[in-house]
Nucleic acid binder design. Structure first.
Length: 112
DNA sequence: CCCGTGACTGGCA
DNA sequence: ATGCCAGCCACGG
């Protein structure tokens, strides 16, 4: 193993979120499950509370319905604007086609 | 130490 | 298909 997975749960979340490709989104549950805590979806969201000081694309993390549940934690409509800026189309005012843009954290090790 | 809250999810009505 | 309830884990007061 590597010394890179010694990080705390929060750090792991930041690492995963940081690997989300542009134009793609993932869910809290997917990240939690990837970290080995299937029921830790809430913890992921909680962890992202500290992402304020991090330079990670937390706006690419939506809930399993594709809704921008965390938009209220962003200034104004930054979350929605950023996603649209990356070419993501909205199926609703604050909802996207999650099945169309879904990205799995397991693709991190994918050799392209 | 105990209680409440939260950027969630799945199941049931 | 939509809405409500309960389960989860971690952290702050």
């Amino acid at each position: 193993m590597t010394d890179s997975n010694n990080n705390d749960f929060y750090e792991r979340v930041y690492e995963v979120v940081a690997q989300i490709p542009i134009g793609r989104v993932t869910t809290y549950g997917a990240i939690a499950q990837h970290l080995g805590v299937a029921s830790g979806a809430r913890m992921v969201g909680y962890a992202l509370n500290g992402s304020h000081s991090k330079k990670i694309p937390a706006h690419r993390v939506l809930n399993r319905l594709g809704q921008l549940t965390g938009r209220e934690h962003f200034p104004g409509d930054t979350m929605r604007e950023r996603l649209q800026q990356e070419g993501i189309q909205f199926s609703g005012e604050y909802t996207v086609d999650i099945e169309q843009y879904f990205w799995s954290p397991d693709e991190i090790n994918q050799t392209k």
